[in-house]
């Protein structure tokens, strides 16, 4: 099994983005786990087994938005420290309510090299990379 730090949780309501992104991540040495909204993402973070080292979070999603997910996540001490990279088409990420306090923000549309570099940087900063 891949080390926990190499697991990436992809949270986006667009299945095409989820699918392509996880294939590319897999090709770059990560294990991608997918969630279609904030509630699924919370469940994935709380599931038994190795915890993802980083969450790639879309903001505008049905059921539970990225902002709501972030509130819930920060309230749960067991998963609060997993860093989040916000991936959004929103011009202003703080306009949806409480501040997101994300490790990084990547604006859609993005180039994959930029996203991979960001993931690498965030994982390094959070000291999980082996």
């Amino acid at each position: 099994m891949a080390p926990a730090s190499q697991r990436v949780l992809v949270v986006d309501d667009d299945p095409d983005i989820r699918e392509t992104l996880s294939e590319i991540l897999a090709g770059s040495g990560y294990e991608a786990v997918c969630a279609g909204d904030g509630a699924e993402a919370l469940a994935a973070l709380r599931a038994p087994g190795p915890r993802p080292g980083v969450v790639l979070l879309d903001l505008m999603m049905p059921v539970m938005s990225g902002w709501q997910f972030r509130e819930e996540q920060l309230r749960d001490a067991a998963i609060a420290d997993v860093p989040v990279v916000v991936i959004t088409a929103q011009a202003r990420v703080d306009s949806g309510g409480s501040p997101l306090d994300a490790a990084a923000t990547v604006h859609k549309p993005f180039r994959i090299d930029d996203l991979l570099a960001t993931i690498e940087r965030v994982l390094e900063r959070h000291g999980r990379k082996k």
Binding site: D14, D16, I17, T20, K108, R111, I112
Partner: peptide, 9 residues
């Protein structure tokens, strides 16, 4: 975004 990701893939 999806199109660019397809292209990157």
């Amino acid at each position: 975004t999806t199109l660019l990701l397809q292209l990157d893939w």
